[in-house]
């Protein structure tokens, strides 16, 4: 906040206005390198706000991945550790086991968590490590130029699937959240999104719950955040959010899957064993 803005703020407060929302102090003043409109920025903001509200800024360690969010440690005013590509859950496991009372979270994208780091992810979940994993899924490798990711939708165009992803050639989209919910080590598994104010508020509540669960020491809390990738998808941010609602959400349904160690009511067993018919994009 620069001097003009600070003066304007004081002026408004003197006029009887109350502050509804302001940027949290847990985020540093560094300008995020993310593309305009990227869901990473919103997700960073939500995590920082949760840390701020819980008052755990001095007692939290984040683990940043490789991918678009590789520089996440620049934006949070908390302790951070960079991990090798895909190995954030393994590093976070060590940090959590050595400091059991510290809140530990990993922040990973789909290329990190669902591709090169699948083994670490699944085993950390299966061991029931008592930490929080934030998984930002945009269905594409954003940083390297929009190549196909394991989470790319069937029929979706990317740099390496210019005619759309084909099941016979490239296989099916990997749904990590459903996969992890079947493991007994996970305590809270949910999928949220950040494209409109209502979704952002729900996502924040989910992240808050995922951090609170660490106090219970019952297992892994996993939050998938569906995000847009307007540069990789070659769209404006607003159009990318609309596209995400129309195409990503039928394949990646929003909502809690496992709460307090139990699969939620209404979750179809077929959805969890991943043999449902996939929606093919037009």
């Amino acid at each position: 906040m620069n001097k003009d803005m600070e003066a304007r703020r004081q002026e408004l407060l003197n006029q009887g206005y109350e502050e509804v929302y302001t940027r949290t102090k847990v985020l540093t003043d560094a300008v995020m390198h993310y593309c305009p409109g990227c869901g990473h920025g919103t997700t960073h903001r939500l995590i920082a706000e949760v840390i701020d509200e819980m008052g755990i800024q001095d007692n939290v360690v984040g683990v940043s991945p490789v991918g678009c969010s590789v520089l996440a440690y620049n934006y949070f005013d908390v302790d951070f550790q960079e991990a090798a590509h895909g190995r954030a859950p393994a590093v976070a496991t060590a940090i959590k086991r050595l400091n059991p009372d510290t809140f530990v979270f990993t922040y990973q994208g789909d290329g990190d968590l669902a591709a090169i780091g699948t083994a670490e992810t699944i085993h950390a979940a299966n061991r029931g490590e008592n930490m929080t994993m934030i998984f930002v899924n945009n269905g594409i490798y954003g940083m390297t130029g929009g190549q196909m990711a394991p989470t790319t939708l069937v029929g979706m165009r990317s740099a390496t699937t210019p005619y759309g992803r084909r099941v016979d050639l490239n296989g099916y989209p990997l749904r990590m959240t459903e996969l992890l919910s079947t493991l007994p080590g996970t305590y809270y598994v949910t999928r949220q999104s950040v494209q409109n104010p209502a979704a952002v508020r729900k996502a924040k509540a989910a992240i808050r719950k995922a951090f609170e669960n660490q106090k219970l020491k019952k297992g892994l809390s996993f939050v998938e955040i569906l995000s847009n990738c307007n540069s990789g998808w070659k769209m404006t941010p607003v159009a990318a959010n609309k596209w995400m609602e129309d195409n990503m959400m039928p394949n990646y349904p929003i909502g809690d899957i496992k709460v307090d160690g139990k699969i939620c009511e209404g979750i179809d067993a077929n959805r969890l064993v991943l043999d449902h018919p996939l929606t093919v994009m037009q």
Binding site: G16, T42, R45
Partner: peptide, 18 residues
């Protein structure tokens, strides 16, 4: 209502009301 601030990826909007 702070809807704009909620979706802003860079957190550049501060909201006040009375």
């Amino acid at each position: 209502c702070a809807s704009c601030a909620m979706v802003c990826p860079d957190g550049v909007i501060s909201v006040y009301k009375k």
